[in-house]
């Protein structure tokens, strides 16, 4: 983050900025200013801001971990931030926000997707599965069991992404041998370095042949 505006035009406010300011500061408050009393109250409660942000939101329907959700989100919100910051599904991790680490991997309609690289509104009507949606009650998913058994993690921060990727890797047919697993799991960084144990866990689940 930072002050990375266009240095050649320091005084030019971007279109988006002026639009947002316009929404926040003028028309809405004026529009609802039926009486001075309401204006005072609206200002007090940040109502202008709330209305402004409501105008910036779009409705969004998704199914997350089997639960149908009717949401209202700003178009600029990523799927990752929607999950983590608005839906309290913090199992999906942010490791870079640039599609370079795999920590944010979720399944969209059964396929692995980097949730930091896609906007929430792109997933209208789709089925999202996060790490929280894998276990059936107390019964862990076989990949979760295998990660515990083979100690496929240390700090655990990359783990949800590794597990979501691992399941997809088998489904895609990319877990035929260890070399394949290593190749097709290379988008998921584990800085603790538990890679060989992760490979062992995936190999075991693959060899057990269950449908995932």
């Amino acid at each position: 983050m930072g002050d990375n505006h266009n240095p050649d035009q320091p005084e030019n406010e971007s279109f988006a900025e002026s639009r947002r300011n316009f929404l926040k500061n003028s028309s809405l408050l004026t529009a609802i200013a039926v009486t001075p009393g309401v204006v005072a109250k609206a200002a007090e409660n940040d109502l202008g801001e709330k209305i402004a942000s409501a105008f910036e939101k779009v409705p969004l329907k998704m199914e997350i971990n089997g639960v149908k959700q009717q949401l209202s989100v700003e178009p600029r919100v990523t799927l990752l931030d929607l999950l983590r910051e608005q839906l309290n599904l913090t199992g999906t991790k942010k490791g870079c926000d640039y599609g370079q680490c795999g920590a944010c991997t979720v399944h969209v309609n059964g396929q692995r997707v980097l949730s930091c690289l896609s906007l929430a509104v792109m997933h209208e009507g789709q089925k999202i599965t996060t790490i929280e949606g894998l276990a059936k009650g107390d019964q862990l998913h076989p990949m979760q069991e295998a990660f515990i058994k083979h100690d496929g993690f240390q700090c655990g921060y990359c783990t949800p992404g590794q597990i979501m990727s691992a399941i997809a890797c088998i489904r895609e047919g990319h877990a035929e041998n260890e070399a394949d697993i290593r190749e097709f799991m290379s988008g998921n960084i584990c800085r603790c370095g538990a890679y060989p144990n992760i490979v062992d866990a995936i190999t075991e689940v693959k060899n057990n042949g269950q449908k995932l």
Binding site: L89, G91, L140
Partner: peptide, 24 residues
Amino acid sequence: KDYKSLDRVDGRLKVTGAARYSAE
């Protein structure tokens, strides 16, 4: 892999996404 060794005691929390880190 054949020695008896305890599985990580917080393993379940980590593989289910239930472990909470500082921003969570």
